[in-house]
Amino acid sequence: MFAPYAIATWEAATIIAIISGLVGFFVVLRQSTFVAHALPTGAFAGAGAAALVGVSSLIGLGVFSLLSAFLMTALRRRSTKDTATALAMVFLLGLGALFLSQSGAYASSVYGLLFGQLLGVSRSEIPIIAAVAVIIVVVTLAIYRPLLRSSILPELTGAQAISEPVLETVFLILVAAVTAVALPIVGALLVFSLLTAPPAAARALTSRPHLATVLSSVIALGIVWISIALGFTTNLPVGFFVGSFGALVFVASRFIGPTRLRPARLLARHTRLDRTPT
């Protein structure tokens, strides 16, 4: 489990957990679960394209994640958010099917790309992943307040420094970037689980946004570490563990979170929160 060849997995997984918890907080706030599912699924085609052209799959994933994000933005001008997301995803998936049919080498790695594989990244890719992660964290923190505001009060978007379309595009790019680095280990179909379950659980546990963001990363870290450890010991797919633990954590948070408390206690909790100096 901690053999030299596995170190890259642990390092990448830790980075992935932290950034997906951070960006995922906004995925949940902005009700973009479908987007978080569609972007990685669409990006899956990138690995196929990379295999055909003969470049690193990380580059292919990055390019196609961004392509997904831009296609969604373009389609939204002509349709609702939901249908634009669905159409962008199926178009890229269609491309994925095309690449799959054209390249035999790619077919064998389909399973790993969709459901994740333990040794999805190599040691040499860690610096790239780390650099992308640093950019994601810096950008997210830089637009943290406007993003939070527009997520909570979308009606007020006219009155802020950064316009809503720009914010939404930056947000989509952030999700795309997380996707590109998380996909090789967690798998295209389950990246969104990491982007939604931990922040949803965190949100149910606390009403303070900053704490929720941190908590979300912590929970994601827990899920990823346990999943990888179990993956190494049982040899079962990582995606299976990520998906199951995500659902478990979410359900558990519903039972112990403030939403399950009686109204009177909930009220008391909120008043206490209100009085804390900000």
Binding site: V28, Q31, T33, F34, A36, H37, Y111, L114, F115, G116, G187, L189, L190, F192, S193, T196, A197, A200, L236, P237, G239, F240, F241, V242, G243, S244, G246, A247, F250, V251
Partner: peptide, 27 residues
């Protein structure tokens, strides 16, 4: 309506995990 997608997502995540397992066993 708010939060409907989130629940759909969590259910989907759990079942996709099972799909991963079943496909793994298939192969």
């Amino acid at each position: 309506v708010r939060g409907r997608d989130l629940v759909t997502g969590v259910v989907l995540g759990a079942i996709l995990g099972i799909a991963a397992l079943l496909l793994y066993l298939d192969t």
